[in-house]
Computed example of a mutant assay.
Amino acid sequence: MHHRILELYSGIGGMHCAWHESGLNGEVITAADINTVANEVYKHNFPNTNLFNKNIQSLSAAYINQLNVNVILMSPPCQPFTRNGKFLDESDTRADSFLYLISILDQLSNIEYILMENVKGFECSIVRNIFTKKLQECNFDFQEFLLSPTSVGVPNSRLRYYCIARRCSKPWNFKTKTEIVECLPREFDEPYCIECILEEEVSDKFLLKDQQLKRAKVLDVCHRDSRRSCCFTKAYSHYLDGTGSVFTEASRELVEKIKNASASELGSSEFIQPLRELKLRFFTPQEILALMSFPKDYSFPETVSTKQCYRLLGNSVNVRVISELLKILFN
Rank of each mutant, 00 (worst) to 15 (best):
H2A: 05
H2C: 04
I5K: 03
E7T: 00
L8Q: 04
L8N: 03
S10T: 07
G13S: 08
M15Y: 10
H16F: 10
C17W: 01
S22T: 11
E27P: 01
I29S: 10
A31R: 11
A32W: 13
I34A: 08
N39Q: 04
N39I: 05
N39C: 12
Y42F: 15
Y42T: 02
F46Q: 03
P47F: 05
L51H: 12
I56T: 09
Q57S: 15
S58R: 08
S58Q: 14
A62H: 04
I64L: 05
Q66E: 14
M74K: 10
P76S: 07
P80A: 03
P80Q: 09
F87Q: 14
D89Q: 08
S91P: 00
D92V: 04
T93F: 10
F98N: 01
L99S: 12
Y100I: 09
S103F: 13
L105I: 11
N110Q: 13
E112S: 15
Y113N: 01
Y113K: 01
L115G: 04
L115R: 00
F122M: 12
E123K: 09
C124S: 10
V127T: 15
R128N: 14
Q136E: 15
E137M: 10
D141Y: 06
F142I: 09
F142P: 05
L147D: 04
T150I: 11
S151D: 07
G153Q: 05
G153S: 03
V154N: 04
P155T: 06
N156E: 10
R158L: 01
Y161H: 11
Y161D: 01
Y162I: 02
R166H: 07
R167P: 02
C168V: 12
K170E: 02
N173L: 12
K175H: 13
K175Q: 15
T176N: 10
R186M: 10
E187P: 00
D189P: 08
Y192L: 02
Y192W: 06
E195K: 14
C196Y: 05
E199C: 08
E200M: 09
E200D: 15
K205D: 12
K205S: 14
L208E: 07
D210H: 05
A216E: 01
K217F: 10
K217L: 07
K217I: 06
V221M: 13
C222W: 01
C222D: 03
H223T: 05
R227W: 03
R227N: 13
R228M: 02
C230F: 05
C230R: 13
C231F: 13
S237Q: 13
S237M: 09
H238V: 15
L240W: 12
D241C: 11
G242L: 06
T243G: 04
E253M: 00
K257T: 13
K259T: 07
N260F: 02
A261E: 13
A263V: 06
A263Q: 04
S268I: 00
E270A: 15
E270M: 08
F271N: 10
F271T: 07
L275E: 06
E277Q: 15
L278K: 07
F282P: 08
F282W: 15
P285H: 09
L289W: 01
K296Y: 01
F300R: 07
E302S: 15
T306P: 02
Y310C: 03
Y310V: 08
G314W: 10
N315Q: 09
N318D: 15
V319H: 03
L325C: 00
I328C: 09
L329F: 06
N331Y: 02
